[in-house]
Every structure is written in structure tokens, then in C-alpha cells.
Design a protein around this nucleic acid. Structure first.
Length: 214
DNA sequence: GCGACAG
DNA sequence: ATCTTGTCGC
């Protein structure tokens, strides 16, 4: 499928609208014990493997894993990742049966040019708390690059946080849905840096491509 | 106009 | 995201 200029304009307008209201609604996430994570990997022959899991932070173990493999039909357009991966990520998240408190998404949430990244849309779709956790910045600038914890600012908006974990690797966290800006540092602290649930779900999606699709 | 650009 | 060899560091 192609994304012509009218579709791109429409979806960008939709993002702007969602970004304007998404963070006014905050049913603050309570307990953070069962953490869900979702990611996707691709094969060269146009297939996508989306994986999800529920991780028990207290017991340090996976309690459920789900996956979904299909063909990708929408191209990647910077800023419109949710169109390409959203449908499949939503699918695998909906396959989870176990209770979960917070969903971690391998993408941005509020730290987006129009303040509505993939994590924002997934949160609105499932109506539960989500956080966007990315390895690279899409927009904005890190206020204090040398600090282990710093805000990400753009045009005076505090759109997320930059963290440097104990291994020196940087990652970016922003609100998806149902989580206040202020709660982010404590949640990352509780998760002990870059969430193991995300590392595990990343490996899982890549393994699916390797073993089931090639 | 030029560069940047989650995954 | 994916395509890839050697290479830096613990």
C-alpha cells in the first residue's frame, strides 16, 4: 500500500490532535509489577513478526509470551511509525491473557514531533498505561547530556527523559498514556534501568524471524 | 535549500 | 528495522 500526500497530511493532523489531549487524561499507573512489552522485527521478504510478553518484575521472569506474524503493507515514514507497526503490535498485546499493569513500547510516546508516537496510540487503543522507550531520539534535545537523568525539551515542552544506565548506554523514555510525566523516573528506577522486558521481547521478535520466516 | 529522520 | 567484518572492551 502507498501513503499518498493526503493520507500523510491526515494522519499527521490526527497525531497533532491526539497529542493535544492524550496527556490531560491520566489514570496514574498504580502498582508496577506485571510489565508488558511489545516489539517487532522484519524479514527481507516483507514479513513482520510482532512479539509481546508479560514480565513479572518482582520474580524476574516471563509469565506469558505471544506473537503474530504477517506481511507488512505500509512503508516506514519518519514520524508515522504507528501506521506501519501499530496494527500488529496492538494484535499481539491483545493476545495477552495475563494481567499487566504497564505496557512498554519500543518507540516514542510524547517525545514526538506532534507529541503522539506509537506508545501514545497503543495506550489509547487499549486504554491502559503505556510508556515509550526508545534507543534513539526522534525530536527535541537532551537538556543535560552529561547527567544520568535529564529532561528532553522541545520548544519549551518537557516531552520526556533521557537516561544513561549502569552500562553507559543511553535510552529515552516518554509518556504514552495513563502515566504522568513526573512518575517516569521512579518507574525506571523500579525497573532497574533499561527494562529487561524490552530486551527479551526484542530477542523474541528477532528469533521468530530467524526461525519461522527467515 | 539542507539536513534529520522512533523502527 | 535490515544488511555485514573486524574490532574495542570487560
Amino acid at each position: 500500500m502507498v501513503l499518498d500526500v493526503d493520507f500523510i497530511r491526515f494522519f499527521k493532523a490526527l497525531q497533532k490532535g491526539v497529542g493535544n489531549i492524550a496527556y490531560h487524561v491520566v489514570n496514574e499507573v498504580e502498582e508496577v509489577r506485571y510489565v508488558a512489552a511489545v516489539d517487532a522485527a522484519y524479514s527481507k521478504n516483507g514479513r513482520i513478526a510482532s512479539a509481546s510478553l508479560v514480565y513479572d518484575v518482582n520474580e524476574d521472569r516471563i509469565v506469558e509470551e505471544r506473537s503474530y506474524i504477517t506481511s507488512v503493507s505500509i512503508p516506514y515514514v519518519p514520524g508515522l511509525l504507528f501506521l506501519r507497526e501499530g496494527p500488529y503490535m496492538l494484535k499481539t498485546v491483545e493476545l495477552l491473557h495475563h494481567r499487566w499493569d504497564l505496557l512498554l513500547v519500543d518507540a516514542h510516546g510524547r517525545a514526538h514531533p506532534r507529541r503522539a508516537g506509537m506508545a501514545t496510540f497503543l495506550g489509547i487503543c487499549v486504554g491502559k498505561p503505556t510508556l515509550g522507550i526508545a534507543k534513539r531520539l526522534l525530536t527535541g534535545r537532551v537538556a543535560k547530556p552529561d547527567m544520568r537523568v535529564s529532561e528532553i525539551i522541545e520548544n519549551g515542552d518537557r516531552i520526556g527523559y533521557s537516561f544513561i544506565d549502569t552500562h553507559g548506554r543511553r535510552f529515552y523514555v516518554s509518556q504514552g498514556f495513563g502515566v504522568s510525566y513526573e512518575a517516569i523516573p521512579d518507574i525506571i528506577k523500579k525497573l532497574g534501568g533499561y527494562p529487561r522486558a524490552l530486551t527479551l521481547v526484542d530477542k523474541m521478535s528477532k528469533r521468530l524471524i530467524r526461525e519461522k520466516v527467515q
